[in-house]
């Protein structure tokens, strides 16, 4: 247990260092943008009031030397200050925190859906190599892998909401329905089906392909033959011998991909009017509210770092051989 604590501490330190550099990039972006950095932070030049721009200039010490400015910026971000959105008249950190739960609900559900379905379909395909089920699954994965997810979202809305009328097409829950308790949960769940499917399908395709090839590789190894020779049933060989080993590269990759998943939520939340930080980013984009946009950039990066730590921990649970150094 102490070992895990140490491991966790090390990963957190590493994450903090990466975060530091991400904040530096953020600072560089503000500086690199054409025009006065204070005006950039306040939104497009001309649209904000000169007093506020002056305030920003003072707060970030824009008349100070560059390294002082950098230090002021980095330390303010690490204190949780992501700036103030002039357009919305609110603190960026408040805006983001308010919407974070909706995004987490969407991305985590989509991630679990993608991973579970991907491993399931990949296993199925590997068991039926060369047969029609394999061909069907491989083709599905190939097509899903090439589908732009924002377009998929629109097409799902067209089919399931407009034509069939089965599922709601936008929002987090029915406005004004006043559902409580379980009815509310069911309502939110119904609203989640299409966004989760849209966000998850691409990654499902990735994990399907990965699981399939990983299983086919492990399948040929000696320890599997040994297990089979001992008389372990085919199902158990698959479950306890093949899958347990084959799934490791899938999880490594899944951890890597967490960032892409969170990025994809900008598109999905835009299509489905899902009230999360992705939609916040899209609105900020329309208004050129850079302060909010850069805040979303920092927060999504933090989420990726957290996701990565969680997958690392998961890894050590699945494969105890891996030392938590």
């Amino acid at each position: 247990m102490a070992k895990i604590g140490l491991f966790l501490a090390r990963r957190l330190v590493k994450a903090a260092i990466i975060l530091f550099f991400i904040v530096l990039i953020n600072f560089a972006l503000i500086r690199a943008a054409p025009g006065d950095p204070a005006a950039v932070m306040a939104g497009e030049a001309g649209a904000s009031d000169p007093q506020y721009v002056e305030l920003l200039r003072q707060r970030f010490g824009l008349d100070e030397p560059l390294h002082t400015q950098m230090w002021i910026y980095v330390s303010s971000v690490f204190q949780g200050d992501l700036g103030f959105s002039y357009r919305q008249g609110r603190f960026v950190s408040d805006l983001i925190l308010e919407r974070l739960p909706a995004t987490l609900l969407l991305t985590v559900t989509a991630f679990i859906f993608a991973l579970a379905m991907g491993v399931l379909l990949g296993t199925l395909a590997a068991m039926k190599v060369g047969r029609w089920a394999d061909t069907a699954i491989t083709t599905l994965a190939l097509v899903s892998y090439a589908t732009p997810l924002f377009w998929l979202g629109l097409m799902l809305i067209l089919l399931f909401s407009v034509h069939l009328g089965w599922l709601p097409s936008f929002g987090f829950e029915s406005v004004g329905a006043g559902h409580t308790g379980l009815a509310r949960v069911a309502d939110v769940a119904a609203h989640m089906v299409l966004p989760v499917l849209t966000l998850g399908l691409f990654y499902m395709a990735v994990y399907t392909r990965l699981t399939r090839s990983s299983i086919l590789e492990v399948h040929e190894m000696d320890f599997v033959k040994t297990a089979r020779a001992k008389g372990v049933t085919e199902g158990n060989v698959m479950m306890f011998h093949v899958l347990r080993n084959a799934i490791l590269p899938v999880i490594t990759f899944a951890g890597f991909q967490a960032g892409h998943l969170i990025g994809g939520s900008i598109l999905v939340e835009t299509v489905f009017a899902w009230p999360g930080i992705g939609r916040l980013a899209f609105n900020a984009l329309l208004q050129r509210d850079y302060q909010v946009l850069l805040g979303v950039f920092v927060v999504t990066s933090i989420l990726v770092l957290l996701f990565n730590i969680i997958t690392d921990l998961l890894y050590t649970v699945i494969d105890p051989r891996i030392e938590v150094e």
Partner: peptide, 15 residues
Amino acid sequence: TIPNFVLAVVLVAIF
């Protein structure tokens, strides 16, 4: 680590 789509959006928007 940086969510690549978010970075791309920020870069294009700023430049």
